[in-house]
């Protein structure tokens, strides 16, 4: 197989801003951002509670969240498919094969990552933070917010990690997005489809974009970890 030609084509597509390419990139990007934005606040709240408060069933919840972490995304896709398909309990929302379904899947995938990272960040927080806040007159709520703010780099790492995971995710997106061109075809599904059709240049171009995203995500993570190290 000649790899040189499709690689050259891939660069051409990228440089020319091929509309099909840009569409897939844009869809991946905005659905990931929306999903992360929606799921981050509840995940941080739950992560904080699990790290700070003792309540019955707490251990069970943590184990459940950790299990969710290693769930194959294609199974998450399947579950959401069953939920939102015509005859599913959420069928009336007509989400199947829409960006909305992809966002829902991304939220489920990002949720355990965000929660687990938040637990780690909060448990690693200096206990003096909360005590200092309280001694200066903060309410319990204010003390908690201050604690989260002091570990903001750890929380930021959680968010970046979650984004990195969903933006390159393929199993769930294929199951519930359906890879409809111009509507639900995002980067990973386009790679899978175009490659199976024998068009390697699209796949290579999108692959390069994904690798650039992965690189960017890891650079940001390293920067955040450097900052967190100042604690």
């Amino acid at each position: 197989m000649n790899l040189l030609e499709p690689t050259r084509r891939a660069f051409e597509l990228l440089l020319q801003g091929d509309p099909r390419l840009l569409e897939a990139i844009w869809l991946s990007f905005w659905t990931s951002v929306v999903a992360i934005a929606l799921i981050t606040p509840p995940s941080i709240a739950l992560g904080f509670l699990l790290a700070k408060r003792q309540f019955p069933g707490q251990r069970a919840v943590v184990v459940l969240v950790q299990a969710l972490l290693s769930f194959p995304t294609v199974v998450i896709g399947l579950l959401i498919y069953l939920l939102v398909s015509r005859r599913g309990p959420l069928g009336f929302m007509e989400l199947l094969f829409t960006p909305g379904a992809i966002i829902a899947g991304y939220m489920v995938i990002a949720f355990p990552i965000l929660v687990v990272f938040t637990i780690a960040a909060v448990q690693g927080a200096d206990p003096r933070i909360y005590e200092t806040a309280r001694c200066l007159g903060a309410s319990r709520w204010q003390g908690s917010v201050t604690t989260l703010w002091e570990v903001r780099f750890g929380i930021g790492a959680a968010v970046v990690n979650g984004f990195g995971r969903v933006v390159s995710e393929v199993g769930c997106a294929i199951m519930i997005g359906g890879n409809i061109e111009g509507l639900t075809r995002n980067i990973p599904t386009a790679i899978a489809l175009e490659t199976s059709k024998g068009d390697f240049s699209q796949g290579i171009a999108l692959g390069m974009v994904l690798m650039a995203v992965a690189l960017g995500v890891n650079v940001v993570l390293a920067m955040l970890q450097g900052k967190g190290g100042l604690r």
Binding site: R128, E131, L136, A138
Partner: peptide, 22 residues
């Protein structure tokens, strides 16, 4: 009643924010 730790913790914001916190 205000307690100050042996090794005080200053919030990682700014000195002024620390003073304004309470």
């Amino acid at each position: 009643i205000a307690y100050v730790h042996q090794h005080p913790y200053l919030f990682h914001t700014s000195l002024r924010h620390n003073m304004e916190y309470g």
